[in-house]
Simulated scan of single mutants.
Amino acid sequence: MSNHFAGAVPFSIPKPPPAPKIRENQTTTNIAAPQSSVTFVYQTKVAESRRSVTVTWSKNLVSHSFCLTVENSSEENNFTCKIDFKAWQFWGKKGLKSFEIDRRRVDVFWDFRQAKFDTTPMPCSDYYVVLVCRQEIVLLLGDLKEEAYKRTRSKPLLEEAALLYKKENVCGKKVFSTKAVLDESPTEHDIVIETSLSGPGDPEMWIIINGTTAIRIMNLNWRFRGNETVTVNGLPVQIFWDVHDWLFSSPGASHGLFIFKPGNSLEFTSHSDPDDNNQHKETPSREFCHFLHAWKEN
């Protein structure tokens, strides 16, 4: 297991997709954490070309929302389908939207009428979202696959969509939970981050995978940034953390950053973020990567 202290990380600190922007009229002493959200970026074949498809699930106290964006040749013409649905509303939970990319029709089908939710922004069961082009399903989300095939009357694409990265915003006081793909299996693993930032002892942090403590970081005031390699199901996983702002910024002003990536290397390719012309985001050059933004509640 390798460990690197603040200021001695052997690779340049990667910058993940930026967190939601803070309103200008908010002050650094009274900043609300963003709503819980999780974003998946896939690559699949749409209209004869490999394109990125971004799927974002969000929730607040009263509703959930879903947003799907398909990359077009011109960034200004990306197609976006957004659905807001509340527990007491039935309309809008099943639908279809169509658009054109390179003169080819693309359809988005969805059915959330029976969808079940737990504590996360995305449904845990009984739903589907389907992206169809030329009678081929190029992206299928959810567990109601038979219903999706029956409704769309389409066949699956021979090459499945590839998941490039996952980005998640979670809020909590001392404990943050997430799920991530950490090995060759598509099954996600349970990850819990526990913190003890105040009290008689030095601040500490634990990163727990599938109920077992993978990393314990003591003297967090000095080790607020670093990375280690752990083993999950016999395979290496790189874990990077940066919790400087938890310790040295105003409460709620910023988030802790965690990156989980299967494999021994942590390689990134930089490109500009369309949501902010002044920032760049880093996405993995070849393999899946999970970005976690952990916002501490006051």
Results as ranks from 00 to 15, higher is better:
H4V: 03
E24Q: 09
I137C: 02
S36E: 15
K82E: 12
K296T: 01
G252P: 04
F66D: 02
H271Y: 14
I22D: 08
R51L: 08
I259L: 12
Q35W: 02
T27H: 02
L197Y: 11
T28M: 03
F176M: 04
F90T: 15
Y128M: 09
A8K: 15
K45M: 06
D276C: 04
P203S: 03
R104Q: 14
M205L: 10
N219E: 10
L292R: 06
D84W: 08
T213N: 12
V9D: 08
K179F: 00
T231P: 01
E48G: 04
E147G: 06
A19L: 07
N277E: 13
T187Y: 14
E204A: 14
M1N: 05
D245R: 09
N210M: 01
L247R: 11
V130G: 00
E48I: 01
N169V: 11
F258P: 07
V106W: 15
S73R: 15
W206G: 00
W246R: 04
Q135T: 07
T44D: 05
N221M: 00
L144Q: 15
V129A: 01
D190P: 00
L235S: 12
V138W: 14
T69E: 13
T27S: 07
S37Q: 08
V130I: 07
K179H: 08
P34V: 05
S49D: 01
L140C: 04
F79R: 11
G211Q: 06
P17T: 12
E71A: 05
S12T: 15
Q238H: 09
L257S: 06
W241E: 03
V130R: 05
A148I: 01
A294L: 15
P200D: 14
S73A: 11
L235T: 13
T187H: 15
W246G: 10
P123W: 11
N77H: 10
S49N: 02
K94I: 06
A161F: 11
H244P: 05
G252D: 03
I13W: 00
D276H: 07
F99Q: 00
V70K: 06
V237Y: 03
P34W: 03
E24V: 11
D202K: 12
W241A: 04
E76I: 13
